[in-house]
Design a protein around this nucleic acid. Structure first.
Lengths: 350, 350
DNA sequence: GACCAGAATGTTTTCGACAACATTCCGGCG
DNA sequence: CGCCGGAATGTTGTCGAAAACATTCTGGTC
């Protein structure tokens, strides 16, 4: 059951007014003009100490809270950021949203988080429509799919926009950290264990992150002189990882599976076990993301730890730099880090 | 890497103006007064067809988007709801937030989702401070901890507030669906399998949901004439489920573990297996929530499916009813549903 | 054709904060 | 003592939308 906490009604003798005080109320209480209050609030220096103190007292007594609506109407600037992201429970890295939310909050902004089906153009359009109507300082796309990118391209924003894509695989010459650091470490780990042939379980092709991971996987496999037996399609879900393995007519010659995220690794492990494979004795399985649960899979999952929160914060800071016309702060997202657990082991000797 | 999609600069010949059109611009373009435009936008009926058409055309040509800031300044109402919730990646049911977000969107509201450490009073205070400054139509607490409830009680809101608690265990005489339907089904399932002594792995005591689940568990255990060997403390995380079992000096006589959520069940299963228990042959483990991954645990988890999205939607609708002064729509959240998988089996014969 | 009711439309004011500009205050100086 | 310059403070207008109020138009009536 639920409780309904109404706004407390201040008693008759209560000093706090039921209606919000405006700077005019404050000014009247302090015996100064509202402009003086405004100047004080904006940190203007030329105010005499005694005037300043009267204002402070009135401000305090009335429990003044600025009306940001009026402020943004006049200034033409708001302190809200619209952020679109995937259904947060569906995919592991919802910490991106948390980091973004926290970073925005710290900068005095509020993040309007809109989670939606990022593969559904209609849903994206509708959300953009609503979000552009509510005055915003900027718009952020925290999950990048082709549908999302396209919707952003065709929508006219009057504010800065920032799309966080794991890699821009059409024009980029800057490979991501995953490609340069994370995936090589993961694949090298498998190579060290004697694995020579791998299989990748990929995310949906319309997600830039999925493409990035395929690219990183293929690059790393070549880099280590290994062989990729194939790329199985998935959709990030544990079910898709399971079904990708179940759908195989026979188990491939590969001795290790590299899933594009931990959930798919979980599903794949179950399917492999059901097909009689022991993990990691017969086949190794590794994931990417390092979701909190993956340390408690059976066996605990070897994976790449990714600092999603930092990524979310960085996205917000980049957008804020754009909004406020300041420098992008020198922030680094820690590179993906290999976490070795028990789901990876020595390749079986034939 | 990331790309930065700037606001597209309209070309010189482009009909779309760089600045947002106001109703005044529209009025001028249509050759009517701005008030006529306003009336049209508000769906006022008394407008002549030809006038209406001129307005429509001008609206369309200028690509007019209402400035909701100005609107809410004047009307004193906004279309934003502040929602506080736990760190969304930490606990399973983040679908509550999704449901709430979707329901708000459908009603023309935007949900400001603020995820925070719901056990940290400072974090809650700061978020409330920020959120109350941004004009809101209402405030929602999607995760209820004692800290959250207390912060809501001591903060003065000028808008409706709705705290979604799973059960109000201090005053409630209405047991939750979990107590009346879900947990009895789960415990009855175990009783049918021959289990007589159970252990509960609980969530943190400051969460109303955790207390509700303990209450529901104890009620159901008594109702089925079973015995509860004990209640182990946890914090919703897989790690805490694991450690709760590891910390036991010896395995209890219980033949089944009822975890308060699926993550803790996952951790508990791993710890039990490491202590040599086979699941479900030696001991059964069940969870609550039915997160998507739980079907792919090893063994797949018997759990209670809870419709979190519906719960989130209901919360928003209740708040909206409060805001708009309308009736609470007759919505029902489907009761928890038993999902039997392979982690529960016949109790071992001694 | 003058008049009227009611519909259609225009004018003015309002919301709260802020900024441009106007005014007052103050001590210093000739 | 009057004037000056700069600091301190007040006055007025602005933002976009909406409401209150004012005005114009329309068709019907006698």
């Amino acid at each position: 059951m639920t409780i309904n906490a109404h706004t407390p009604e201040p008693g008759a003798g209560d000093a706090v007014p039921a209606k919000a005080a405006t700077i005019y109320d404050v000014a009247q209480a302090a015996g100064v003009s509202h402009q003086t209050v405004s100047r004080f609030l904006k940190g203007f220096q030329g105010i005499r100490p005694e005037t300043r103190e009267k204002v402070v007292r009135a401000l305090d007594e009335l429990g003044y809270r600025p009306n940001l609506t009026a402020r943004s109407l006049k200034s033409g600037r708001s302190h809200r950021i619209g952020a679109l992201t995937h259904e947060i429970s569906k995919v592991g890295p919802s910490r991106v949203a948390e980091g973004a939310s926290a970073a925005a909050r710290e900068a005095g902004y509020v993040l309007d988080l809109v989670s939606l089906d990022v593969a559904n153009p209609r849903a994206i359009e509708e959300s953009l429509e609503l979000i552009t109507q509510h005055d915003l300082a900027g718009v952020l796309a925290l999950s990048s799919t082709d549908e999302m990118t396209r919707a952003f391209e065709t929508t006219e924003f009057r504010v800065p926009v920032y799309i966080d894509v794991e890699v821009d695989d059409t024009v980029s010459s800057h490979p991501s950290d995953l490609t340069t650091v994370g995936m090589p470490a993961l694949v090298a780990h498998l190579a060290d264990l004697g694995h020579r042939a791998l299989v990748h379980i990929a995310g949906p092709a319309t997600w830039s992150a999925a493409r990035n991971r395929i690219l990183a996987y293929e690059t790393a496999v070549i880099g280590q002189g290994l062989r990729s037996i194939g790329i199985l399609p998935g959709d990030w879900s544990a079910r898709s990882g399971y079904e990708a393995v179940v759908a195989l007519p026979r188990l491939p010659d590969a001795t290790a599976f590299v899933a594009a995220n931990d959930q798919m690794a979980l599903g794949a492990m179950l399917a492999l076990k059901e097909r009689g494979c022991r993990i990691p004795d017969d086949v190794s399985v590794v994931g990417i993301d390092d979701i909190p649960e993956s340390a408690y899979f059976d066996p605990p999952l070897t994976t790449l730890h990714i600092d999603f929160e930092a990524a979310g914060r960085l996205s917000v800071h980049k957008l804020l730099a754009e909004i406020e016309g300041t420098e992008v702060p020198q922030m680094v997202v820690p590179p993906p880090q290999l976490v070795v657990r028990r789901s990876s082991g020595a390749a079986p000797s034939r």
